[in-house]
Simulated assay, not measured.
Amino acid sequence: MLDLRRLEILHRFAALGTITATAADLGYSPSAISQQLAALEKEAGLALIERTARRASLTDAGRELAEHAALVLAAAETAHSRMRARIGTVGGRVTVSCIHALAPALAPHLAALQRAHPALNVVAHETGSATAAAAVLDRRYDLAVIDDWSARPPAEDSGLSVHRLRREDIVLAVPADHPLAERSGPATAAQLRRLVHDQTWLCAPAGQLSRAAGDRYLTGIDATPPRRWEFEGLHILAALVAGGAGVALLPAGLVQEQAGVAGVRPVPRMERTILALTRTTTREDPAVAACLHAARQALGSRHR
């Protein structure tokens, strides 16, 4: 019989690609991971890992067993969730990830949940929205809170449950004393083109979802910023707008929280969606359900 824990290690290795990354993810030393994979090879009766001086990779048999491992682990997790649902106690370990901009709102609710359920151990991490779905499917996280800046948020995928927490307007953030801040109506595309040309455009670095969405929006209204500053973190961008450094497209809720900044709704409209991702195999797990409920309480109805 193949050991379930070793199948989990093989599954993580297949997802992460290196012994070092697998060890860091699971909290073991690289030598311990190598030993467990070697033991799994003995149980399987054939080579699963091809080792060279520089790296280790899966053999054909290793890839096939990793595919079977994913199915076995999913079935085991579903069974475990259903047994926990029968008990009804909120307990055990739940790993939660959240983008850093939403963590201050989510953290107090998770802390309160732990106080209410002493048997529950919430392990919190910061993550990026682009990689969260894969991390949930690979069981690195049980719940991931992310933002999606696309016009159509993702639908449920194989093994992944998508929970929509709220939809939020993206507004043009300008200093509170800017002439546009005194207007009651939205900013037209022509006004935006003039503003982008005259002001420094503040945005996230290339590769960030907000940057890609903002660039698509500017392309759609035929606007190209002649001056662009790139900074990591939407809160940093809001603070820069407040200081008069430039203008940016930012979530309406964040703009409302930042002193010295006004938000003007652009035309055409722009929005983002706050999502929570879980696995379908944990749908009946009371602890995961409680953490998801905490996310809904924290983020579900703050701003529109």
Rank of each mutant, 00 (worst) to 15 (best):
A245C: 10
G91E: 10
L254K: 09
M1N: 09
W149N: 01
A151D: 15
S57V: 09
M1W: 08
L250H: 01
A66N: 06
P205D: 06
L120I: 04
L110N: 03
D285A: 02
A124H: 13
L4A: 11
V123N: 03
D157G: 15
L237R: 08
T95P: 04
V255F: 04
L102S: 10
R265W: 01
G260N: 13
S29G: 10
T52H: 04
H80D: 14
R166T: 13
L37E: 06
E230S: 12
R93E: 11
T18V: 07
A223P: 00
V72F: 10
P266S: 01
A69P: 04
I221T: 07
E284I: 02
G246N: 01
T127S: 15
R216F: 10
G244R: 05
A252R: 11
G260I: 14
A101H: 09
L292N: 00
E257I: 10
L40I: 08
E77F: 03
R269I: 07
Q258P: 11
Q35A: 15
L275G: 00
A111V: 15
R115Y: 09
G159I: 02
A155V: 05
R194Q: 12
E77H: 04
G207N: 03
V94S: 12
D177P: 06
L165Q: 05
A223L: 04
D147E: 12
F13L: 05
A116K: 14
A76P: 03
E182Q: 15
R6F: 07
I146S: 02
H293E: 15
H293W: 11
S301Y: 05
D215T: 12
Q256W: 06
Q191T: 00
L120G: 05
P179W: 15
R302A: 14
K42S: 12
W201K: 01
L180Y: 13
V241P: 05
E67H: 15
P205H: 06
V96P: 02
T219L: 15
L299V: 09
P108H: 08
A181E: 09
S34W: 04
A75V: 03
A101S: 13
A173D: 02
V90E: 13
P30N: 02
A23Q: 08
L65W: 07
G62S: 00
L4W: 09
S210R: 09
L110Y: 08
Y141G: 02
Q36T: 02
L58Q: 08
L73F: 02
A287H: 00
T188I: 03
G185S: 10
L16Q: 00
V255H: 01
H11Q: 13
V145G: 04
A61N: 11
Q208R: 10
V247C: 04
R54P: 00
P30L: 00
A173S: 03
F231N: 11
V90Y: 13
T127E: 12
A173Q: 07
A262L: 10
R304S: 11
G88H: 11
S57I: 10
A14V: 01
R63E: 11
A66Y: 07
H80W: 14
P251A: 01
R283F: 14
A155F: 12
A76N: 07
A66W: 02
H11C: 09
R115C: 07
A135I: 01
